[in-house]
Structure formats: structure tokens, C-alpha cells
Design a protein around this nucleic acid. Structure first.
Lengths: 231, 231
DNA sequence: CCTACCGATCGGTAGG
DNA sequence: CCTACCGATCGGTAGG
């Protein structure tokens, strides 16, 4: 397979990234060897190293291309200046579609970005933050009160959670496909958004800090959880 | 640390699992060495191996204890026979609390269960399915029509996605803590549930299969995604 | 584009 | 004879 005509340099790189993403998604980045990647591409390991400097650069390109695509989607939808609810629904539809088309890359993004060295990882995470910020703006469009309370980002993250988790359990061959689930997710999220009651400013029953005003400022750090850093 | 009095065998095991879960969550199962686990426990590697046969058995116990706890929670809440909405809300509250108390173990569960050998992995996945089934029943309690269409499990998985994803971005020291976010998640999900419109029976505009009746049967396979198996 | 290797480190176990 | 542990090192394989 993939052995027909000699592909151009760039085509070869795309093919390698695609196969590598599949392997990383299946076995995890750390447990996948460069030998396996080479074999999956029908290349020798030395040839593989001709196209990519090292294993990390495969990981960086897979994750970076992916977040760049998502960011572009968010920007496109925002540029259309739809009505608030329509905007959010369109965002859900487009994001779900993007996931459907790049399941492997998405899994790699959510699970293996931590194995990038700090500078590269930071670039990917920065793009992620921009995506979340875009979704948060759409949320604030539907519920300005929650947006003012800085709940836009946490709510955006909850939406992200639903979508990110989908590729864990959805089977493309299942009866419920991505086109069918997207409206369900949109109904659930947009409908639910109207039902969200703002949490009370943090009461301090036993010596807790007073709320400093907004409800969730500084509470966001996508993919940099309290579990600590790596490496 | 943890060197004071000689702990009992069982206490030592619990301590090891706790430290191992933290390391696995931070660095990933594969990238964590038994030397690191031993060091984090203040033990020699040989002593670590006295308590656990091998690295996999650490992973098994971390993940299995965790799903067992979640299953127990689902069973407890179900046994109280609350009104449908109250039941779902209580489920959300209890699950979020469980996550808050075992962040590391939860991350290991969601990301590293695939590194278990098939028999152990299957035990964990089976318990996961029981948890999802329990949540699906609660969903069907609120929206019997969706339950009949076999949308209960997909919706349960969307809820799972929100909660699973939370520990990726929430900071325990943030202003919005677990107690504050749980009601937001409950509002969002329960409120959203009322807004979900059943997807139409799969139309077949260009030669697609006809829907065989219910909307999503056989579409669930938690953690066994279409990306393939490992190993 | 390949074979042949390297420094290092892996999970697991030896003798005492 | 047991358990609870130690310092040292095994055979294999990783990324490069």
C-alpha cells in the first residue's frame, strides 16, 4: 500500500504523520517505536528519519496541525456572525465533524501532548487556549450573565469534554454516526446552557477565602492539571 | 516520609498504589519506571516487587479499585429510588466528588487501561459498562422516550465526557472548586436532557443502510474505540 | 536508502 | 524454615 508512484516530499510527510497518528492513538506515543512507524509507512527507519528529525517532531506536527485546524474552524464560524444560538450549534457541528475526520490525531492530542518538550508543548497549549476562548465567547453570546461571571471557559471545557470523549466510545460503523450525534450534543449543550443557574459567590462556612468577584478567574489551565508537570 | 512505624502489609500496598497512581497520572504508565515508583514510596525496587508481582498489577489495582468505587456509587444512588431528576443530580454530585478525591486514579483509568493484558482489561471494561448502564437508566428515568430509543447510553457517555475531562483543566486550588462545579454540570446535563430532540430514524439519501429500529444499539464500546486494539 | 551498531535504560530477579 | 528487605545486575530493546 502507498507504494505506487514516488510521492513528493510533502506528500510523504503527510502520509507518515497519518500513519504515525494512527499508531500513537492505538498504542500510545511512548509505547510506539520508530521502527513500527517506519514499517507502517513501508519505509526503513533511516528513511523515516530523513523526513522527520526525531520522534518528538512527529508528535509535534500531529498535535499542532490538529489544533491549528480546530482554531481555524472556530475563527471561521465566529466570522459569520450568526445569532448566538446558531453560532454555538454551528460550532458544535463543525467541531464534531473535525473530530470525525481526524479521530487518531485527536486522541494523540488529548493524551500525548504532555510528552512534548516544554516549548513545543506550550505552542500547542496556547492554540488550545485560543480555541477555548472562542467557544467561551460563543457561550457568553447565549448566556451573557454567565460570561460575565467568567463561567464561559469552564462551560466551554465541559462542551470540549463531551466532544473529546466521543471518539472513545463512538464507532464510526455504529448506527449512531457523527452526523446524527452532533445535533444531540448541540441540543444538550445549548438547551442545558439555559438551565444553568449561576453558582453563588463562594460562601465561606469554615474559613474559606472570599470570592474575589468573578466566579472562575484563573481557574483554567487546559491540559496542565494539578497532577503536576512531566519530565 | 512514610517511614515512621512499620505499616501493615495492606497499608503498605495502599500507599504504593496511591504513589504509583500519581506517577502514572503525571508521566503516563509506560514512561514511568518501577524504579521511580519504588523511589516515590521510599522503598527499594526489590521491596516494591514484594508487594506487587509486576508493573501491570499496579495498573490493574489502580484502575479496578477505581471503577469498583464508581460502580458502588451508582448502585447506592440507584438504591435510594429518588425521583428521576433528583437521582441524576445526585449521581452527578457523587461522581464529581469521587473524581475530586481520586484525580490521579481517574486519569490512569481513562488513559492507561489499554496497557492491561486482555483478561484484566476486560474486567475493568466490564465494570465500566455497568456504570454506564446505571447512568443510562437514570437518563431514561428523566427521558423515557430517549431511553427507549437506546439513546440512554450515548447520553450517559456525554455526561461521562464532561466529568472525565474536568480533571484535565480544573485546578483544585482554583476559585471554582468541585463542589461549585457539580451543580453547574447537573444543571447543564439535566436541563439539556429536556431539550434533546430525538434524532430522526436514519434517512438514507444516498444508499445508506436503513435504521433497524432503535437508534443506537450496539454503538457502545467504552474504551474500545475504532482505532483498534493494542499489543 | 540499508546494515550495523552506540549509550542508556527498561522490567524483572539473582544471591545472601 | 519464614518474612522482609538490600545492592547489584540480568537479558532485551529503546531512540537515534
Amino acid at each position: 500500500m502507498a507504494r505506487g508512484r514516488a510521492p513528493g516530499y510533502e506528500d510523504q510527510r503527510v502520509l507518515i504523520l497519518d500513519r504515525a497518528a494512527l499508531l500513537f492513538a492505538r498504542k500510545g506515543y511512548v509505547a510506539t517505536s520508530m521502527n513500527e512507524v517506519a514499517e507502517a509507512c513501508g519505509l526503513s527507519k533511516a528513511t523515516l528519519y530523513h523526513y522527520f528529525r526525531d520522534k518528538r517532531s512527529l508528535l509535534f506536527h500531529i498535535t499542532h496541525d490538529n489544533v491549528a485546524r480546530l482554531r481555524a474552524i472556530v475563527a471561521e464560524v465566529a466570522a459569520r456572525e450568526l445569532a448566538p444560538e446558531a453560532c454555538l450549534r454551528e460550532l458544535v457541528r463543525r467541531l464534531v465533524a473535525a473530530y470525525a475526520g481526524a479521530q487518531a490525531a485527536h486522541r494523540v492530542l488529548t493524551e500525548d501532548v504532555r510528552f512534548l518538550p516544554p516549548p513545543e508543548r506550550e505552542r500547542v497549549l496556547q492554540t488550545e487556549r485560543e480555541i477555548v476562548a472562542g467557544i467561551a465567547r460563543a457561550v457568553a453570546g447565549v448566556r451573557p450573565d454567565l460570561g460575565t461571571m467568567a463561567l464561559g471557559k469552564p462551560l466551554a471545557m465541559l462542551l470540549f469534554g463531551m466532544i473529546n470523549w466521543m471518539f472513545t466510545w463512538m464507532r464510526p460503523d455504529g448506527v449512531l454516526d457523527y452526523d446524527a450525534i452532533a445535533p444531540v450534543v448541540a441540543d444538550l449543550f445549548v438547551g442545558g446552557l439555559h438551565a444553568v443557574r449561576p453558582p453563588p459567590a463562594r460562601a465561606a462556612p469554615r474559613g474559606g477565602r472570599r470570592a474575589t468577584g468573578s466566579a472562575a478567574t484563573g481557574n483554567m489551565a487546559p491540559s496542565k492539571q494539578a497532577l503536576g508537570d512531566k519530565r
